[in-house]
């Protein structure tokens, strides 16, 4: 058995809202090997971000992790004291968020914000920490003299680099990136992806959250597709792209424009279900053109063929082909 850096077992996260209980993540299991890039793909509201935030325990009321285990590097993250957990956060696990415009403190110089990580986790003195902050800034491609700049004096792309610099400052084993490029324009997007990949080459595992399957396919080792709080398909990137088994994954692939082919872009009809009262059986059945009585009645379980797992009654049968 290969050693896993991160193991999510049977995670259940619920939001207790005034209008009902939302099952945002519903019995999801995932594994991540050291040095691997795993992308979680799905529409907004499918629970992918909730899952990422569960790993770093950033679920706050009305949300609550109600079941499951998260094992990181042999330690149970959810069972840990807040104190012990804080030692891991920022040091062994780094997080990059979606909106670089708002993820930095507007009132503090970026150098201070980077240096703070060194001071908090390594007990460095301010001067030494600022020195290190300069180094890591250069590493993410920002001139060292920007150390005394305020966030508002930088562009969105630069800010996201700073956010990444803070996340990787202590060379974490795992970097969680929640749609880090969504708020940026396409060219900047690419350079940020390159930057992330360079850290992967240095041995950091990456958990990449995105709604963009094409973007995920470019860089990932493995892809996990989520729909309505459930993991519907998971496997090596080639398998997912070339041999998708779940109708939803196929739908996502078809909605990607292709420069080189006369492919018709198709969108998936309908909307994701209301997670306060998800449909019975397979949650995708109201939008699935292959759905039959069994799909409406019985919830499919995740079945694996080698590394490739899928949760669909129709998978593997001829009914889904085409």
């Amino acid at each position: 058995m290969p050693g896993y850096l991160l193991e999510i077992r049977d995670l259940v996260v619920k939001y207790y809202t005034l209008t009902g209980v939302v099952r945002a993540v519903d019995h999801v299991s995932l594994k991540l090997k050291p040095g691997e890039w795993l992308s979680i793909v799905g529409e907004s509201g499918c629970g992918k971000s909730t899952m990422a935030y569960s790993i770093v325990r950033l679920i706050s009321p009305p949300g609550k992790i109600v079941g499951g285990k998260i094992i990181f590097d042999g330690r149970d993250l959810l069972g840990m004291s807040a104190r012990d957990f804080r030692r891991i956060l920022g040091r062994e696990i780094g997080v990059v968020f979606q909106d670089p415009m708002t993820s930095l403190d507007p009132l503090r110089r970026i150098g201070d914000q980077i240096a703070e990580v060194y001071m908090t986790h390594l007990g460095m003195k301010k001067k030494e920490a600022l020195e290190k902050a300069g180094e890591v800034l250069e590493r993410v491609g920002i001139p060292r003299d920007k150390i005394s700049a305020y966030p508002h004096q930088m562009s969105g792309g630069q800010r996201q680099r700073v956010a990444i610099a803070i996340a990787v400052a202590l060379k974490p084993k795992l970097l969680i990136a929640d749609e880090p490029t969504t708020a940026l324009d396409v060219i900047v997007q690419d350079t940020i992806m390159d930057l992330l990949q360079s850290f992967k080459k240095e041995g950091t595992s990456i958990l990449f959250i995105t709604h963009d399957l094409a973007l995920a396919a470019e860089r990932s080792d493995r892809i996990a597709v989520m729909y309505a709080g459930k993991l519907v398909e998971e496997g090596p990137v080639e398998e997912i792209v070339d041999n998708p088994q779940h109708p939803y994954t196929r739908g996502l692939l078809k909605s990607v424009p292709d420069l080189w082919g006369p492919k018709k872009i198709e969108s998936i009809p309908g909307y994701p279900p209301d997670l306060r009262s998800p449909p019975p059986g397979c949650r995708f059945h109201p939008r699935c053109r292959y759905a039959d009585d069994r799909c409406r009645r019985e919830e499919p379980v995740l079945r694996c063929l080698g590394e490739h797992c899928v949760a669909c009654h129709k998978a593997g049968s001829s009914g889904v082909e085409g």
């Binding site: 956060l89 920022g90 803070i166």
Partner: peptide, 24 residues
């Protein structure tokens, strides 16, 4: 706000985060 969440995700102690929030 997002930057408070970012602070938490960096393992910054709570009292410091409260102080930064208060400043803002």
């Amino acid at each position: 706000m997002d930057f408070i969440r970012s602070y938490k995700a960096r393992g910054i102690p709570r009292y410091k985060i409260t102080w930064y929030a208060l400043k803002n």
